[in-house]
Amino acid sequence: MAVIQFTTNLKRFYPDLNAIEIDAKTVAELIQKVDLKFPGLKDYVVDEQGKLRKHVNIFIGNNMIKDRETLLDTITEKDEIYIMQALSGG
C-alpha cells in the first residue's frame, strides 16, 4: 500500500492526522479514501470539481503530479505520496 505523508499545516484542522497507508491506483482514488478516514479533508485538497487547489501540491516520490485537473496520475503500492502546501507569498 502507498504511504501518504501530509504537510503539518493540515494538522491544525485535523490534529490526528499522521502518515497513513492506503491502497489506491490513482491520486484521485487515494484522495477519496483519505476522506473516508478524515471526513472533509478532501475539501481542503481539491475543489468541488475534483481539481487540486491552486496552492496545494501532491508529490509521488520526488515528482509533482502532472494531472492537477482530474488527479489521474497512477501510483503503485511502493510509492510514497506527499500532500504539501505550496509556497506562496515568498
Binding site: 499545516n9 493540515l10 484542522f13 472533509g40 475539501d43 481542503y44 485538497v45 475543489d47 468541488e48 470539481q49 487547489r53 496552492h55 496545494v56 502546501q85 505550496a86 506562496s88 507569498g89
Partner: peptide, 27 residues
C-alpha cells in the same frame, strides 16, 4: 489561501466552533 473557503459557526459566542460542509457548485 491554500485550503479553500470554509464555513464555521458557533452557538456559544465563540467558545467552540463547528466547521460545516462548505457550499459546492454541482459537478
Amino acid at each position: 489561501g491554500h485550503w479553500g473557503c470554509k464555513v464555521h459557526k458557533s452557538t456559544d459566542e465563540g467558545k467552540t466552533w463547528k466547521e460545516l460542509e462548505s457550499p459546492k457548485y454541482p459537478e
